[in-house]
């Protein structure tokens, strides 16, 4: 192996390492409701890095508008709170799950079917972007 090749390889490894360390998403799914009702998207967002990241926007050509929300049941009334941004602290994990944090997806541009996958683009304040496949599940999914 030439020196140049060695350099290239270590650079590649470094780049890959950096990519691995950035925020990751698992268990991403959308609860399908009929018509054009707003939908909720759920996921687990993990930050393996020692620096924090802030989720500032989520977008997809499939929806007109996507907001970050949190359900509140604290005053005995089921309500929602829209969050302009969500900080993901170092080595932290935020679960978007039923009854808590969720993405609120407004206005479908195309009809959705159960079982299909929708790509959502997560944008962070430092310019980092993550395209995440969300699985469309039945209304009765849990």
């Amino acid at each position: 192996m030439t020196l140049a090749a060695r350099w290239l390889l270590s650079l590649l490894l470094l780049w890959q390492g950096a990519a691995l360390a950035a925020p990751q998403v698992t268990q991403a799914w959308i609860r399908l409701l009929p018509g054009d009702l707003p939908l909720a998207g759920y996921m687990t967002l993990r930050n393996p890095e020692s620096q924090s990241h802030t989720l500032v926007a989520v977008s997809s050509p499939q929806f007109k508008r996507i907001e970050i929300h949190r359900s509140l049941a604290q005053s005995g009334m089921a309500r929602m709170q829209a969050l302009p941004r969500l900080e993901l602290k170092a080595h932290a994990q935020v679960r978007f799950s039923p009854g808590g944090y969720h993405l609120m997806l407004f206005g479908r541009t195309r009809p959705l079917r159960r079982g299909q996958t929708v790509e959502l683009l997560l944008q962070f304040d430092d310019g980092y972007q993550l395209s995440v496949p969300f699985e469309v599940r039945a209304a009765t999914a849990r």
């Binding site: 609860r31 409701l33 009702l37 707003p38 939908l39 909720a40 929300h69 359900s71 049941a73 089921a78 929602m80 039923p98 009854g99 969720h102 609120m104 997806l105 209304a139 009765t140 999914a141 849990r142």
Partner: peptide, 15 residues
């Protein structure tokens, strides 16, 4: 509840 409620209502009904 109400149908435009994306999280709590469907979650409760699914349950």
């Amino acid at each position: 509840g109400y149908t435009h409620c994306p999280d709590i209502c469907p979650t409760t009904l699914a349950r």
